[in-house]
Simulated scan of single mutants.
Amino acid sequence: MRKNILKYSILIIFLIFISLGFTSIKEIEINENFKVTGSLLNTVSMEEEPLVEVTPPFLGKSFVGFKEALGFKESRGDYFVTNHLGYIGKYQFGASTLRLIGIHDSSDFLNDPELQERAFIANTARNKWVLRRDIKRSVGKRIGGVYVTESGILAAAHLAGPGNVKTYLRSGGVTGFKDANGTSIRYYMRKFSGYDTSYIQPDKKAKI
C-alpha cells in the first residue's frame, strides 16, 4: 500500500514538473515570437515612412541667394563638372575668363571649390566695373521688355561677357546674344532680377 502511495506521489510530482516545464517553454516561445513580430513590425514601419526631402535654407534675394541661384542654373551647383564645351566648375568658367582674373591652371581650379567662389567674386567685381556706367543709366528702366536691375545685368555679364551686355543695353535690347545652349541675355536679366548685389564693389583690376 505504501509502495502504491509512493508510486502515485512520484507520478504526480513528475506530471507537475513536466507541466511546469511545458508552460515555461511555451512562455519562452511566445515571448520570442513577440520579439520577432515586434522587430518585423518596426522594420515595416521604418520602410513605410515617407522620405523627407532636405531643402537648402531660403536665401531670398541676398547676394548669397544670387550666387547660389546662378551656380545652380549653370551647373546645378556642381564644383567638379566640365560641360561639353569645356566650361568648368560650379559657375561654368571658360579658360579666357579665368586668365583675366589671374587663374591659369584649370585642373587646380576645377578641384578647388574655395578658389571657384573667389573667382566668382573677382569676375563679378570686374564685370561691375566694366558696366558701371550702363548700370547707372539702365537700372530701373524696361529694356527689351525686361525691367532692368543690377543683379540681372551682372548675371547676364556672367553668361555673355560684359561687352555683349553693354551692346544689348545700349541698343535698347535690339542687339541680342545667345550662348551655345540658346540662353539669351534677356532671359538671364529676367531670371536673376532683383537680387542685392551691393556687396560687390567695382574693381577694374580684380584678380585672385
Rank of each mutant, 00 (worst) to 15 (best):
D108E: 09
I200D: 05
V54H: 10
Y195G: 07
A122H: 01
R126C: 09
G71P: 03
G65E: 03
S138E: 05
R133W: 13
T97P: 02
L70N: 02
F17M: 06
T149E: 05
S96H: 04
S198M: 07
E47D: 12
V52S: 10
Q92Y: 07
L15W: 08
R118W: 00
G38R: 11
S198Y: 03
E27H: 11
E68C: 06
D203F: 10
A119N: 06
F177N: 03
I10F: 13
F72Y: 15
K128Q: 03
K7H: 03
G145T: 06
G152W: 04
L159E: 15
K204W: 08
S19L: 11
V174K: 15
I5P: 00
G77R: 05
K205L: 15
L11I: 06
K204F: 15
K207C: 08
A180C: 09
T175H: 06
L6R: 08
T97M: 07
L70A: 05
N33R: 15
F93Q: 10
K141I: 00
E49Q: 12
S198H: 08
T149I: 00
S24D: 05
L100R: 14
E74Y: 02
P56D: 15
A157N: 05
S151K: 01
T23Y: 11
D196K: 09
K204V: 03
T23M: 13
N123F: 14
T183P: 11
Y91M: 08
N4I: 07
G21D: 13
D112S: 05
K67A: 03
K35L: 12
T97G: 07
F109T: 10
I200W: 08
N164Q: 08
D196T: 09
V52Q: 14
G94P: 02
R133M: 11
E114Q: 07
I13F: 14
Y195Q: 02
T124M: 04
S19F: 14
F22W: 06
Y199D: 13
I16A: 12
E150C: 01
R118G: 00
Y91V: 11
K61T: 11
E117Y: 08
G161H: 05
I16T: 07
F58A: 09
G86K: 07
P50D: 14
K73E: 10
G144P: 01
E48F: 14
L154F: 12
Y199T: 12
A155P: 15
K7F: 01
E68Q: 13
T55M: 11
M189V: 00
W129N: 07
I103R: 01
G173Y: 10
G77L: 10
V146M: 04
E150P: 00
V139W: 09
D108A: 00
I18F: 14
G176I: 03
V174F: 13
P113M: 04
